[in-house]
Amino acid sequence: MKNLSKIFFLIILLSGISFTAQTAEKVEYLKTDWSFKGLFGKFDRASLQRGYQVYTEVCSSCHSMKYLSYRNLAEKGGPEFSLEQAKAIAASFEVKDGPNADGEMFTRPGKLSDKFVMPYENVKAAQAANGGAYPPDMSVLVKARGGGVDYIYSLLQGYEDPPADVSLDDGVYYNKYMYGNKIKMSNQLSDGLVEYSDGTNATVEQMSKDVTTFLMWAAEPHLEARHKMGFKAIVYLIILTTLVYFSMKKIWSRVETKI
């Protein structure tokens, strides 16, 4: 009987090995320090603000962010632009509104309550303008990709010349980190592409990190509140558990059984 269980543990071990072998085949993502990881992780405000700049100046011409509103930019735990800055950002966009009293649609400057302006009217229009590939909405993109922030950070820097045995169609590019290595988005970032107002050197690496941080916040706007509350909740639970443990000891001491 002992042998039987040994056999099964061997099988588990084997499958464990094959699992690690499988993951080893995958490309290792580029690593960087994310300030928002860990029990007390918080966003780097300056990085979020720079990331927003990269998004607006580079990504937003194709990628929508339909779940974000301009007011979010001034909210706690986000880029924390001042209310005036956020209002100015909103007002710099033309928002379609209406119908007015005459039944006409009209445009007006954006307000804080408006959603981020979308680059295309609808998915079909986006596909038509991008050779049939829909540039995905970026509101929850980080959570919608298995590798999360590391994947996106790597992808943005993963453009390479294709190996000799890979042939690419028109409008398809080679990316080391893309699933299947073929991507319909061309390399968007180059050193000095944007001019950061805080003077940070806009290298490809820096821009990738900033915009990925921004996307992480966009997907998980309450991350800071979550980490903060989580720490309090767990400390509280540990205290209560300790108290209950000693109460239990006391109560059970009335009967002889140990627990």
Partner: peptide
């Protein structure tokens, strides 16, 4: 005191 403290902390939660 132990029981009171436990109840009080529990109630806060």
């Amino acid at each position: 005191f132990l029981f009171t403290a436990t109840y009080a902390v529990g109630a806060v939660g």
